[in-house]
Design a protein around this nucleic acid. Sequence first.
DNA 1: TCAATAGTGTCTCTTAGACAATATTGA
DNA 2: TCAATATTGTCTAAGAGACACTATTGA
Lengths: 224, 224
Amino acid sequence: MLIMRELYPLVFVDVALFSVVDDRLRVLLVRRAEEPLAGKWALPGGILKPDEDTNLLSAAHRVMRGKLGIDLPHLEEVCTASGPKRDARGWFISVLYLALLPMDRVQAAIGKKITALQWADPLVLQPELAFDHGRLLGRAMERLQQKVARHALPLHMLPGKFTLTQLQRVCEVILGRDLDKSVFRRRLKEVHSDDLVEVVGEKQGGVQRPAQLWRAADGFQFLG
Amino acid sequence: MLIMRELYPLVFVDVALFSVVDDRLRVLLVRRAEEPLAGKWALPGGILKPDEDTNLLSAAHRVMRGKLGIDLPHLEEVCTASGPKRDARGWFISVLYLALLPMDRVQAAIGKKITALQWADPLVLQPELAFDHGRLLGRAMERLQQKVARHALPLHMLPGKFTLTQLQRVCEVILGRDLDKSVFRRRLKEVHSDDLVEVVGEKQGGVQRPAQLWRAADGFQFLG
DNA sequence: TCAATAGTGTCTCTTAGACAATATTGA
DNA sequence: TCAATATTGTCTAAGAGACACTATTGA
């Protein structure tokens, strides 16, 4: 069936993928290879393919698999952007997703594409992101901070085994402020005793008391 | 320009419009007049018209203006639904909006279309809403309750002048539980002293102490 | 005065924050 | 033993909830 192009908007999915590198929050940016705005940095994203995708979420998964070659452990919708003049191609809808990546998979994610990918500081206003991606990144940051402030545990950003100090550090990095160790662990015990599982292994740590290792429980979700 | 229909999804906006009628929470439903699922009750909604709408939000405003003849004072995006088989028409995206209507405009909203519109109880699981609207309604309810629980004031559901008791009642109806009068007013004073303005007028009230009337400040937003 | 609702005060209990104290390891 | 970090305990302050009290009106 052939129809008028102007009656249907272009639909994109864009992803704000966060991780923590060296105790600093980072977001993945890609350098646009094609027009419009070729050469500019942007959030990774792609166009919806109704013939391949079962829904928008799976489109986001597909796009990120294409960019990084990995499946993201967490991907959630944040909001949409829309309007008639994203670029010359006309009316568009962009659905923004928030994603988390374990810190130990950051290097593998970028691989050798260091000219096309970068882990940028989301707090330092990126000089000029393409389109409205600066605003979208802000929305994703808000969502991430809100959830952690409401005690959602960003376990998807941590390696398979982690110490509570590591977990606390990740939360601090996301929130941009220090947390009290005692308060942090007290809440953990009270609320999330079923979502975190103790592990037999112990940490090395050199000249210091070894820390207990933990892991996320099966089916853990980044809720809150 | 003519293109393949299958490459572009249909885009709908659907609206969960809440109000309070006789101390009960209500959501607006419409009886579908056309196929598919003609005769079934559904959330009001319509198809995006890129040639008319400047973005998805304005599409939602346009659709509701068409159904009710009024401009909604509050409309916010909740989430999207998407997939290949909403109905025979193929791949679709549906963007859900949450809206609030003042209780004193409920009658005007329905007008004489009582066979096509109804104010239904969103808590009583509507037997069978069309499409996935039952799930969408649940998402909108969650959002509404979350915001009020986080102390967002649903002033958009109240008439221009209202008493604090009325405001508290609306919050109670949304949350489905009683609130403490003292706690409610204490918080109001502490947090929202700049967002609510005292009004000279007093309430009638018959055989009882008259209550102070309040109104929403200019530019008030349903945040929280 | 009374009924009825508006509006305020106070007590307690839970929880968050600050910070101290104890525990465990390798050198 | 010491340095360094893990883990726990304790005190205090802020906030939420429960509930009682006072205030104001028309009849």
